[in-house]
Amino acid sequence: MSHHLLLIIHLLCASIWVGGHVLLVFGHLPQALREKNQNIILDYERKYEPVGMTALVLLVVTGIMMAYKYGVSIEYWFHFETPIEKVVSTKLLLLLLTVLFALSAQFRVLPKLKNNPGKLPEMTFHIISVTLIGVLMLVFGSFVRFGGF
């Protein structure tokens, strides 16, 4: 697959992933907190999850494929020696952090949130954290255009 096509898919998926979280933070979260209504968050998550998770999987796949095209194969991950290795490795660390937040939310916070609006502040922390991580990944990815950092 050509690098350009991979990049287009990657950018479309990043738009869905980051855009969906930004919409959640600015469009739905304030209302849920104001009304102390966790169902606003749960309803959004239920609708967004199939699209968002598909986008995330495609982000990972296209990101790894592009890293290989830049010569950053698995044996160079987390070496932080070249500028592109730094970008790839930083994004992989942020991806791991995203996965940890997702697991925490899925198995620890969401089951309790369903019956307890008192868990909204903890879910808010998870939502804002994943959103900020997504924005950081987007910004760091833009450095590839300049040869890395």
Rank of each mutant, 00 (worst) to 15 (best):
V61M: 02
H28I: 15
I64M: 03
V22K: 04
H28P: 15
P121M: 01
L132K: 01
Y44E: 03
H79D: 06
H21W: 05
A67D: 03
K112L: 13
F80R: 13
M66A: 09
E122I: 14
H28E: 14
F80H: 13
F101P: 00
H28D: 14
T82A: 04
L11W: 12
V51P: 12
N116T: 08
L94M: 13
I64Y: 03
K112M: 11
F78W: 15
K36P: 11
T82R: 08
L42W: 08
L56Q: 08
V130M: 06
E81P: 12
Y44V: 00
L11I: 11
M66Q: 10
F107M: 09
E81Y: 08
L11D: 11
G141R: 04
V72Y: 05
L97C: 08
H79S: 08
V57T: 10
V22W: 03
T54S: 15
V72M: 00
P83M: 02
T131N: 04
P30D: 06
W77A: 07
P50D: 10
E35S: 09
I41G: 03
F140H: 07
V72P: 10
T54Q: 10
S73N: 05
P121F: 05
V25H: 00
Y70L: 05
G71Y: 14
F26L: 15
L136E: 07
I41Q: 06
H10V: 12
I128A: 09
Q38R: 00
T54C: 12
H28A: 14
G52T: 15
E81I: 09
N39M: 04
L12P: 07
T82H: 01
P111D: 02
D43M: 01
V61T: 00
V109F: 12
V88R: 10
L113K: 01
Q31G: 15
L100G: 02
L58S: 08
V139W: 09
L113M: 00
L23T: 14
L95S: 15
G63H: 12
H10G: 06
D43Y: 09
E85L: 06
S73H: 07
K119E: 14
K86N: 13
I64T: 07
N115S: 12
M66T: 09
L42M: 01
L11S: 14
G141N: 02
E49T: 09
Y76P: 05
L120D: 01
Y48R: 09
I74R: 04
G118D: 15
L136Y: 09
M65F: 11
L33W: 11
P121S: 01
I133H: 07
A67R: 01
H21Q: 11
L94C: 11
M123T: 01
Q31S: 14
Y70F: 10
T98P: 03
V51G: 07
L120I: 12
V139F: 05
E122T: 14
L97E: 05
E45H: 15
L24T: 08
T98R: 04
G118Q: 15
M53Y: 06
W17G: 01
F140N: 04
D43K: 05
